[in-house]
Amino acid sequence: MHVPDGFLSLQTAVGAAAISAVVVGECVRRLHRTLEPRQVPLMGLAATFVFAAQMLNFPVAGGTSGHLLGATLAAVLLGPAAAVLVMIAVLVVQCLVFADGGLLALGANALNMAVIGSLAGGGIYRLVRRLGVGLRGTVTAAAFAAWCSVLLAATACAVELALSDTAPARLVLPAMIGVHAVIGLGEAVITALVLVSIAAIRPELVGGGEPTTHRRTSLVPGGLLLALALAALGAPFASSLPDGLEWVATRFGFEHRAVATAGAPLPDYAVPGIGSPLLATALAGVAGTLLMLGVSYLLGRLLVPSGRRQRSET
């Protein structure tokens, strides 16, 4: 998702950089109030960790591999504001040391992966965290939030490319969303697995300091709201090319090619048999989101045996 230079118009790049700068300023202000001194080196080391974790490849299918984005993982472990800074640091080093991701595009990449990735990931995590108690709740919420954060970051990236007139919106939006709905699954599973393995060694590092609320009832409206918000986001993609997904599957995400050809659960983001494409897309968005919520819940149940849920609360 690292956009190189040359693909974003000057206005888009500068605009995205301005938004990122404002958010980073706000995060720094917030952290100056709340950050304990001992968390400063932790942020530096966490940035190093995300950088290294992005290099660990996980096999997807057919001999291809994907890698982690890590924004939600960072947000769960450090809180959203610190995660924004950590992700920005990762992007700056990738850009200014490895030339990975453009210099002018740095602001846009920061907006997508650091700001949107961490804040959306962290926000959704906090909202959905009430799904279960203890580690199981953490894992479920983190998996779902990880999927959403990848999807939202990809959406932002597509919007920027479209605004820059590099690719038509009707092509790039459904393509990016379709591909990343599947890539996000990998992000969700790995995020969940990493959290479980951290909790196995040092349980206090996972969700440390976060109050555990037991009000399960608040989940239903929260989840629904979320699903609706995502569906509303999905609506504009109704006018997608009929074969847009397949095309991008074979050409766009060269690293994740094989995943995408396996197909998203709802191809073209439209439900067959429903007349209005706008409504169809909205319904598809709701269905996809609810499905992912279910997958995350299963992931939580599968990875965290019920005996361990109380222990992790200490």
């Binding site: 190093t48 290294a52 790995i190 990493v194 393995s197 951290i198 060694i201 590092l205």
Partner: peptide
């Protein structure tokens, strides 16, 4: 891979 990453975070 995930447990490797987990260990890496704990070490960090």
């Amino acid at each position: 891979v995930a447990s490797g990453a987990g260990q890496l975070f704990v070490r960090s």
